[in-house]
Design a protein around this nucleic acid. Structure first.
Lengths: 246, 246
DNA sequence: ATTTGGTAGTGTTCTAATGACACATTGCTC
DNA sequence: GAGCAATGTGTCATTAGAACACTACCAAAT
C-alpha cells in the first residue's frame, strides 16, 4: 500500500447541514469552472482519499481542507458508485481534466453527513474551493457530479434518523427556546406540527433543562431558554427512541 | 476507464439472510485456505468490482459467480474502509497473495444485504468459493477480513428496517402460517413477542390474505395458511409504517 | 374409543400515547 | 395605554399498547 498517495478510485463527500432558526442550509463549495473560465460549479465538499486513512478520517480531512470546518461528528450515508457518476456532464469532465492526475478513473464515493450549529462554523474556502458557504437546502437544484442525489439521500437519512435519535439538537445554539426547536423539526419534516403536542412530547423525553432565563430584546413576549441535559441526552442518544414521529 | 478490468481498490460483499422457520441463517462461502493448505476460511460472498459496472450490479454478479444465487433484491449496508481491514490477519494476507493481482492494494468494500426464501435458493459454490452454504447466524463467530463486523451491521440494519417496512416477508414461503411469521419476528428481534398482540398488529396491517387452506400432516391442530396481499403489501412497502416495533 | 401431546386460535381490560383544538399572557414599540 | 407578536398552557376523545389464560383441533399412541 502506497503511503500518502491519493487513491484514484475512491472519494468522500460531506453533506453538512446547518440551521439558522429559519430554514435548513447545506454547506457548499464552488469548485470553480475549468481553467480559464469563470463559471461556478457548486458541490458538496469532497475529494479523493489517501490510501493510509480511514474513510471517516478522509471525510474529516477533506472537509477541513476545503472549508476549514473541523471537529464535527460525521455519519455515513452510503456509497455511490454509478460508473458514469462523474462523467455525465461535460462541465464535470472538464473540471476533472483540469485537476485530477487520472481524470478518466472510475471513482466511487462514500458520502457522510453531519449537523452543525451554523454560527459556530464559518466556512473558509481553501484548496480547490473558490468559495464555501451555506445555501438554503430548498434552493439547491443543480450540483456537480451526482451531488444533488447525494444531498437528497442525506436529507432522507436525516428524516429517518431524527425519528429514532435525538440528533438535530446539534443544529441549535447552546441556549435555545422551544419554539426554535419546534421550528427545526418543522423544517426537517417539512410540515407543520402542533405546538402544544410538540412541547408535550419533547418535554416528556426529559432531555431539556429549563435555564430560568429568558430571551432579551425580542419585540414580543420573551421565551424561556433551555439547554440539553447532558446525562439524559446521551443516554437517549445511545438507546434511541422508538418513534419520535408526528 | 478500462473495460472489464477489476478495480483493485473496491469490492462488494453480500450478506444474504435466510430463514428455515426455526432460525436465521446467513449465506457463507469457504474461500479456501492459502495454496497448498486445506484450512477453511469462511466469508460472506464478495469480490472486487469491474470498472464498468455499478456497485449493485457488481454485488449481483459476484453473488452469482460465487454461489449461483441470482435475481434477488439487494440493499446497501454501507462502505467499510479501514485501511487495515483486509490485512490484519496473516491468513487473510496469505489468501490475498494467492488470489489477487495486487494483494497489497487497499480495498474498501461496499456491503449489501438481502433476505431470501432459503428453500428456493440452493447455493452452489463456484469461482474461488470451495463451498457455499447456510450457517445459523448465532453460530457464526469468525469470518475472513472484517466480514463478521459487516454481518453485524447487516443484522442491525435488518432490525432497524423491519420496524418501518414489511420486509422480512421475503424470508417466508409463499404460503405460511401466522405462527411462522411470528417466529420470524422473534428471531430477528431476538426476543419473545406476545402471540395475541402480534397477531392483532399484523392483521391490522391488511397485508395478509387468508387462503382458507390449512396445514396438512402436522401432528397437532393445523394452522390457517396465509399469503401476502400484493396490492396492500406493495403500497405499505413504499410508504413504510411508522413503528412496527414491540 | 379414549387419552395424550402439542400447537392454533381467540378477548378483555388497563394504561399510555396521540391528535385536535382556543385563549389568556407577556414585553416591546409607538 | 393600545396594539402587536409571539409565548405558554389544558382537556377530551380516540387509538395503540401491554399483560394475561383458556378452549379447539388434529394426530398418534394406547
Amino acid at each position: 500500500m502506497n503511503k500518502k498517495e491519493l487513491n484514484p478510485n475512491v472519494s468522500v463527500d460531506c453533506v453538512i447541514f446547518g440551521f439558522d432558526l429559519e430554514q435548513l442550509y447545506v454547506l457548499l463549495i464552488d469548485s470553480g469552472g475549468m481553467e480559464g473560465y469563470n463559471q461556478s460549479r457548486m458541490a458538496v465538499p469532497g475529494d479523493l482519499i489517501y490510501d493510509t486513512e480511514t474513510l471517516d478520517t478522509a471525510a474529516r480531512r477533506v472537509l477541513k481542507e476545503l472549508t476549514g470546518i473541523e471537529n464535527i461528528y460525521l455519519e455515513q450515508i452510503g456509497a455511490f458508485g454509478d460508473p458514469d457518476r462523474i462523467g455525465k456532464k461535460v462541465s464535470d469532465r472538464k473540471w476533472l481534466e483540469s485537476i485530477r492526475a487520472m481524470p478518466e478513473a472510475r471513482v466511487i464515493t462514500v458520502a457522510y453527513y453531519s449537523l452543525v450549529r451554523m454560527p459556530n462554523f464559518n466556512p473558509k474556502a481553501s484548496s480547490f474551493a473558490k468559495s464555501a458557504g451555506w445555501a438554503p437546502v430548498n434552493e439547491v437544484h443543480d450540483l456537480a457530479f451526482d451531488h444533488y442525489e447525494i444531498l437528497q439521500s442525506g436529507l432522507e437519512q436525516l428524516k429517518r434518523k431524527i425519528k429514532i435519535q435525538p440528533i438535530g439538537f446539534n443544529l441549535l445554539p447552546e441556549k435555545f427556546t422551544l419554539s426554535q426547536l419546534h421550528k427545526l423539526y418543522e423544517c426537517i419534516y417539512d410540515k407543520p406540527l402542533d405546538k402544544r403536542n410538540f412541547r408535550r412530547k419533547i418535554l416528556n423525553l426529559n432531555i431539556l433543562t429549563n435555564l430560568d432565563e429568558k430571551q432579551i430584546g425580542v419585540p414580543h413576549k420573551p421565551s424561556q431558554l433551555f439547554k440539553f441535559n447532558e446525562g439524559n441526552f446521551k443516554k437517549l442518544s445511545e438507546e434511541g427512541f422508538d418513534n419520535f414521529g408526528f
